[in-house]
């Protein structure tokens, strides 16, 4: 049954071309800043600088270059992810097609989990491809960085993206308005990030700190313990929210009033 549901999701995302444009967008996001920053000195030179003023540009390390990609993902990448996933379940409920699916003996749990897996497979694939592109340009333009570092970035930052996808799926089970799902998901992410920076070191374990800790890892080459904590907390929260999504989906359907 899960395979049947999953294949339908694959086919849908193939027909609406998500499997083409999302990876492309993730590649663009990843390589945009490393390339522009590399050519920035020449470009500024050409415009003539500002009347003899000497422009000091920081020398970027390979680690900085990788973090440029990550920082693009933290803003535009997250935005694209949220907009992509806002209708995962809610739009099917809104249109009414879910009625035809759910009068068949489909397990609600499997339904939600499949939606989640399908979203994750798209986001993770695109993210991995994007980071590989980023790594390629980094090595080419800024110097060597171990492949294991790249894997670490993919794993830990992937957790943050997974976290956001899971929140989106959760809101998808609550409402049938995709716009509201996007709004709530972005709102929740912002609040978490805000609280995390507000409480400083006391919330070092927050999922929102994954990228900060990653930066430390890239610079020092050692895995900071806070990164491990953040990862564990993220995984636990992801599992928790996923269960909450299943529960809320069942509740919402069970108490349907329209």
């Amino acid at each position: 049954m899960t395979t049947v549901l999953f294949k339908k999701e694959l086919l849908e995302n193939w027909r609406n071309k998500k499997w083409i444009w999302v990876p492309l967008v993730f590649i663009l996001l990843a390589i945009m800043d490393p390339i522009t920053n590399y050519y920035l000195p020449e470009i500024l030179d050409a415009v003539g600088g500002i009347d003899g003023a000497v422009i000091e540009l920081p020398d970027f390390s390979p680690a900085d270059a990788i973090m440029m990609s990550v920082s693009q993902y933290s803003t535009l990448g997250v935005l694209v992810t949220v907009l992509l996933s806002m209708g995962a379940i809610s739009s099917e409920r809104k249109s009414g097609v879910l009625d035809l699916v759910l009068v068949k003996p489909v397990s609600y749990t499997k339904f939600v989990v499949t939606k989640w897996l399908s979203l994750l497979s798209l986001i993770w694939s695109s993210f991995i491809i994007g980071m590989l592109a980023s790594w390629y340009y980094t090595v080419l333009l800024y110097g060597e960085i171990p492949f294991t570092m790249l894997l670490a970035v993919i794993f830990y930052y992937g957790l943050w993206l997974t976290f956001i996808c899971t929140i989106s799926i959760f809101y998808n089970t609550l409402t049938h308005s995709p716009g509201l799902v996007a709004f709530l998901t972005i709102g929740t992410t912002l609040v978490i990030s805000l609280l995390t920076s507000l409480f400083g070191t006391r919330t070092a374990w927050s999922p929102a700190n994954l990228s900060t800790h990653l930066q430390e890892l890239l610079i020092t080459g050692d895995v900071p313990s806070a990164l491990i904590y953040s990862a564990i907390v993220s995984i636990l929260l992801i599992i928790l929210i996923l269960f909450a999504s299943i529960y809320s989906f069942k509740q919402v359907l069970h108490n349907r009033n329209e």
Partner: peptide
């Protein structure tokens, strides 16, 4: 040759 992929991808999109 470095910048080309960036432009090509935009074009494909």
């Amino acid at each position: 040759s470095l910048v080309a992929p960036f432009i090509v991808i935009q074009f494909i999109l």
